[in-house]
């Protein structure tokens, strides 16, 4: 089946089998390997991307369900060599160790900040409850999201979504 979608601003038209998962389309067919597969059972959040601005788990979506939609992956956040403020904040605040959960964690954080620009600690925990991290213990992830919120607030910019 032929589908058309936008991935990080670039229009893609591609023939896919209906059973192809969106995460496999991104990684195997379009070479966007920044989106990770952790559990493959919709529990860990490593595969989180933005679909028309909403954080979703791309292991639990078919590529055909994204026909006509706009997708943002972790590769679509930076502009050139300028990292996105949420990426910058994770770097500055040690919001990652091995980095496996990080793409999904950052995409979930971008979606959270888009809807809730100044989240409380509770709101951050709730916004990231679908993302598991085996390394950090979450404390620095929460700090990173708080720092990103402040940076975005200072710069007056809105997160790309």
């Amino acid at each position: 089946m032929r589908i058309a979608l936008t991935v990080n601003g670039e229009r893609q038209e591609i023939d896919v089998e209906p059973r192809l998962l969106l995460v496999h389309l991104l990684r195997d067919h379009l070479g966007r390997t920044g989106t990770h597969i952790g559990c493959d059972t919709s529990n860990c959040g490593a595969c989180t991307i933005l679909l028309d601005g909403d954080a979703v788990k791309s292991c639990t979506l078919l590529a055909v369900q994204a026909d006509g939609c706009a997708i943002t992956t972790i590769e679509g956040l930076a502009s050139g060599s300028q990292m996105h403020p949420v990426q910058e904040a994770f770097w500055d605040n040690h919001g990652l160790q091995c980095g496996f959960c990080t793409p999904g964690m950052i995409m979930a954080a971008v979606a959270l900040l888009d809807r809730t620009p100044r989240p409380s600690e509770e709101e951050i925990k709730r916004g990231l409850e679908g993302n598991l991290c085996r390394c950090t213990g979450y404390v620095n992830i929460i700090r990173s999201v708080q720092a990103a919120a402040e940076a975005l607030d200072r710069s007056g910019s809105v997160p790309a979504a």
């Binding site: 954080a55 979703v56 788990k57 979506l61 959270l112 709730r126 916004g127 679908g130």
Partner: peptide, 9 residues
């Protein structure tokens, strides 16, 4: 229900 990603779908 579930988490933010689940509630979005």
């Amino acid at each position: 229900v579930g988490d933010a990603q689940v509630r979005n779908r």
